[in-house]
Amino acid sequence: MTPILTMRGVNRFFGTFHVTQDIDLDLAPGEALGVIGPNGAGKSTLFNLIAGTLPPSSGTVAFRGRDVTRLPASERCHLGVGRSFQIPHPFTGMTVYENLLAASVFGRSGHDVPEEACRDILEMTGLLKNANRPAGSLTLLERKRLELARALATGPQLLLLDEIAGGLTEAECQELVATISAVRDSGVSIIWIEHVVHALLAIVSRLIVIDFGKIVAQGEPRAVMADPLVREIYMGIPADEDAA
């Protein structure tokens, strides 16, 4: 089967700073991939390169077999890439419902009745009671939910989630995991950057670790987490001490 996403030799520089280094990545349709790594490792930049918010300095990005390297974010969204932002970017002057409606209408979501689709997504993400509130009045956690809801409203085939579980209580985190697993089970491919590892492990079937812009480990999530190198990078536990 054609991978839904293919990245080949993708590099990105900010000035002389080499943020993303030679990334090769394939994602199968329906696959859920987790991304972990220290702050500043280049995880969000990776999302910007996939979503088209940033063009790569070199390399190619293909989505559903089509080269999208030169396409702007809006056109990648039309093809089926939906994303959330780590720092929420709500449309503060619109209501929560209008945020979703705009995403559904302009994202070419294929929803027959955008109003109804938006209602379902609001319900699923626990935002229904806030539907007619201005998005600017939401708390940080509600804004993160809105990021997820708005990305879903575009009708994505690939959903990019950037640290949406941080700061949630255990109960809220479980609700979120249930929501995301429902999205995954509906056939949407997911890439999820998350520091809340146990939430991540409940969803993903593969994990990659990024450090200094490179993929330094990947594979079955539990095996990756047990890798001494990963433990050193990610938790600061020196490899030799861990062995002792």
Binding site: T53, C77, H89
Partner: peptide
Amino acid sequence: DSGTAAESIG
């Protein structure tokens, strides 16, 4: 409200 987010929703 946000040019970046507007672009990302199509």
